[in-house]
Amino acid sequence: MFPIVHARQLSDSVFELGVQAPAIAAKAKAGQFLMLRIAEGGERIPLTFSDWSAKEGWIRFIFMRVGKTTHHLSHLCVGDSLADVVGPLGVPTHVEGIGRAVVVGGGVGAAVAYPVARAMCDAGAEVTVIVGARNADLLILEDEFRALPLKELIITTDDGSAGRKDLVTAPLKELCEARAVDHAMAIGPVIMMKFCAATTREFGVPTVVSLNPIMVDGTGMCGACRCTVGGETKFGCVDGPDFDGHQVDFEELMNRQRVYNDLEREADADYSRKCSCHQ
């Protein structure tokens, strides 16, 4: 069992949990993920690390409440525990020797952008971060980003309730036009990553995206996470989750992510009916 040692709500539907998992915390690197299962009968879901402490032996992750499992997770508190946490999985994000970088975090993707930006800063890169959200309420980790030695933090919201009223691709394009970046990394909804990659492509700025396909085991066994990169089938869990954004077939990924939408709604409705304690 993995005891929960930290829990906080970041916005209406976004939460952060921390669990004691010393063996995983000792190894975790930016861009890697974990698989968790809340309890017997639960599903296994992948979540990327948002933070960890090798010294104190904990790991944290941030998630949006979208289905039954994340709904259940959002109800857990310090003192509860998770049945299973496995990791660190996936290839760590490449952060060494990348010069001037821009890291784009959209929505809950900011949770992954944060440790990536931090690792890039630690590796000596000059890092600009663009954080985008639909509105100010959904903006997460602003204080954490401000505490990093960034060149600049750019905030965009769809409605202008915080930072610029823009999509993340607008400042990204400006940075590319100004030849101010040598490397881009985008983490967020697939559609955002697709447009970020499209934006940087015309300027020839190498762009890495962190994909979030459906997984079952997370160790290469099932192939649920397969995606097409440069015309080849890759497994998100063992070959990724980071891939060359200019090579990824985003349309296919978006299609594959909706396989279980109907069933997930059914499961969540079932859970919501049973769980009336938080209403």
Binding site: G41, G42, E43, R44, K68, T69, V216, D217, M221, C222, G223, A224, R226, C227, T228, T233, E252, N255, R256, R258, V259, L263, E266, A267, D270
Partner: peptide, 28 residues
Amino acid sequence: NLNGVYSANEFLTRVNLMRAYEFPKADT
């Protein structure tokens, strides 16, 4: 890579290990 194509590993893992045949009682 169309939706509806499974590896046998994924299909059987969902059903055997994760007990998807009991869905929605089991979550997978």
